[in-house]
């Protein structure tokens, strides 16, 4: 228990460090005074700066000014010319990840029958090695919790791949799922259901919300079950997720409809106004987003039919019609079809 606590503590402190560094970077970007000199020559304003690793100098390619010197080369001290050499010289493994049940830290006996000198192993001990390999693989999953995690995380990865979600969403989903396991929330619920709702929560945490329908399509459980489990774990874990904003859906739906950026920004603008007039409260975000896209596509002369928009957004045409009437009326948008 104490170890777990410690681990959590470390996790927390690491996260806060990362958060701080992000904050710092953002501040820097705001001030713009720290990073710019390294990309722009202070003398001639040229942007073509060259790092000379032999002399450890940052040199302006146009005027020859040495901008920085004795900088640290953070790369490896060895060189490799092909994959084999790289594999041989690299002393580290893959980075730690939450998406593998043992965080990718356990050892694996690889499939090559070669010893540490690169010599092939005699046929006598090959059978033994085969057995060792098998048991090593089995022993990686030590207890029921691990087995649960192994299954759930592979399921998470499968769903994330099917949805084309990025690395950080997968990591977040894995962290959410691990937290749920730590708090014994899985008991009485299906692993698939909790995994799917962890993914749904992670998408929202990363501001790339997917609808429940989209998640349900790639998972083995129903939309209802995912919604229920999501509500449960978000309450128990205190995820404190804001209700999704329709604006978050706009880019995805627009690209799904092959609409230009102009239509996108118009739709976002409509939604901003709608939010100000409290037209979005109690309405499904996807429906509102779909209606805004429908209106802006007409306004920008790139009309998409209600059916096309409905198809992409996963709502019905009736919903779009209702939302679109509300929006048009309340925001004084004249639409000539």
């Amino acid at each position: 228990m104490a170890e777990l606590e410690k681990e959590k503590e470390i996790e927390k402190s690491e996260r806060s460090k990362i958060r701080e560094s992000i904050k710092l970077r953002k501040e820097k970007e705001k001030v713009g005074a720290f990073e710019k000199p390294t990309v722009e020559c202070p003398e001639c304003g040229s942007r073509s700066l060259v790092q000379d690793y032999e002399r450890a100098e940052l040199v302006c390619n146009d005027c020859g000014l040495v901008v920085d010197s004795e900088f640290i080369d953070q790369g490896p001290e060895w060189r490799a010319f092909d994959h084999d050499q790289r594999m041989k010289r690299s002393r580290v493994g893959a980075p730690m990840t939450y998406t593998i049940h043992d965080k990718g830290l356990s050892t694996m006996i690889d499939w090559r029958n070669r010893d540490s000198y690169g010599k092939s192993i005699s046929s006598k001990s090959r059978a033994q090695l085969y057995r060792l390999r098998k048991w090593q693989r089995r022993i990686r999953v030590s207890n029921a919790t691990e087995r649960n995690l192994a299954f759930a995380l592979s399921e998470l990865d499968r769903m994330a791949s099917a949805l084309g979600l990025s690395r950080n969403v997968r990591e977040t989903a894995a962290v959410v799922y691990r937290k749920a396991v730590d708090m014994n929330l899985i008991r009485g619920r299906s692993i698939e259901g909790v995994a799917a709702s962890a993914l749904y929560a992670a998408c929202r945490q990363c501001n790339v919300p997917r609808t429940l329908d989209e998640i349900a399509e790639v998972s083995r459980v129903s939309r209802k079950e995912i919604g229920r489990t999501y509500r449960f774990i978000s309450r128990e874990l205190g995820l404190k997720l804001m209700p999704t904003s329709p604006i978050d859906y706009i880019p995805r739906f627009c690209s799904g409809l092959n609409l230009h950026g102009e239509v996108q920004s118009k739709a976002v603008e409509i939604l901003r106004q709608a939010a100000e007039k409290e037209l979005t409260s109690g309405r499904g975000p996807t429906g509102v987003a779909a209606a805004a896209i429908y209106i802006s596509s007409i306004l920008c002369g790139e009309r998409r039919t209600q059916r096309e928009v409905a198809e992409v957004a996963g709502v019905t045409e009736v919903t779009i019609r209702n939302r679109y009437k509300e929006l048009a009326e309340q925001l004084d948008i004249e639409i000539i079809l």
């Binding site: 609808t211 429940l212 919604g227 999501y230 509500r231 309450r235 205190g238 404190k240 997720l241 804001m242 209700p243 999704t244 939010a275 409290e278 979005t280 409260s281 109690g282 309405r283 499904g284 975000p285 996807t286």
Partner: peptide, 26 residues
């Protein structure tokens, strides 16, 4: 008329449940 988004934040996200995608009420 109520602005449910504002109420959700005002009452504290840990005390309420508001998922417009699943149910229009808070």
């Amino acid at each position: 008329v109520l602005n449910l988004n504002a109420i959700a934040i005002g009452l504290g996200l840990e005390n309420i449940e508001y998922e417009p995608e699943q149910f229009p009420g808070l």
